[in-house]
Design a protein around this nucleic acid. Sequence first.
RNA 1: GCCGCGGUAGCCAAGGUGGUCACGGCGGAUGUCUGAAAAACAUCAGAUUUCGGUUCGAUUCCGAACCGCGGCA
Length: 306
Amino acid sequence: MQQNRNDKLIVILGPTASGKTELAIKLAKKFSGEIVSADSRQIYKRMDIGTGKATKKQMKIVPHHLIDIVNPDQEFNVTIYKKMAVKAIKDIQKKGKIPFLVGGTGLYIKAVVDNIEFLKIKPQKKLRKELENKTTEQLFKIYKKLDLRGAKLIDKQNKRRLIRAIEVCKATKKPFWEQRKKGNPLFDVLQIGIKIEKEKLKNKIENRIGKMFKQGLEKEVKNLSEKYGWKTWSMQTIGYQEWKPYFNKKITKKELQQIIALHTRQFAKRQMTWFKSDSRINWIKNEKQAEKLIKKFIKLTFPLNS
RNA sequence: GCCGCGGUAGCCAAGGUGGUCACGGCGGAUGUCUGAAAAACAUCAGAUUUCGGUUCGAUUCCGAACCGCGGCA
């Protein structure tokens, strides 16, 4: 354990609408920290209301990183994210401040916390296009030939994963599965998860959507769809994709709102499924508990703060 | 009131000609995750409106009741 080097990282995670943003800002302010977003949608510019970004005002209280970093028609992925996040975190540490990694995108958080070293094989458009025309059975057969062990463990029916696995095998001439790896941990991490009952979260989700509608989500979505269409990756976002049938007059506004709420609830559940499996997460119910954990965590490196 | 049509899981919904019946989809529960992750994918639970009859056997055939829809009065 290095005593005086600042390699601490505090993670604040939880399902959508659980109140991460608010909590993180309070904590970061209190412990002189800066926020690094771990949210796969808030990276997009112009997608403000529907992704639940912090307001300009809030961002003035505490510096935020990795928000608004690409245009809505640009492609983005974990690898890019990880690189940027690690850099942002280190920069904050160098300033003697504490980085707060805040968000609900499990894979992004994991990439940083577990230092996943993604294989440097770029997605190959031609190959992917070719493979996409095949059935999952065909893809599985191909993969099996390239990586017998991996074939036993992969989601057999998940085309997207099969294609990626094949892509890596072909590019590296080695089995995909055994090439996956984690590096040594980059940071000393404290993970804090927001615990919230299902019913309560359901209400919060509904309220939040109501608020978004009032804040002008319709216009935001309309502008985006007119400028970039509906097919971009960024439009594959809850709170955005659902508007298409509404604009085409296939559903009413009330139905639209219900569908968004449904999708959001389902998403929240998937997030929890992801987080549940990480036993390192400290689940808290309120700010006080979070503060307590942080104080204890920080003591060694920042004796003056406690 | 009469005539017709229908009543299959929380919702939608397949099931010519009776054989441990019970297709799907949505929703639900549980889970997977190493370059799209607010993505993609998997597993599981759950039903024949009710009461009688015919039959070795009824989701299926017959009758009645109840409910819904349409038409006539």
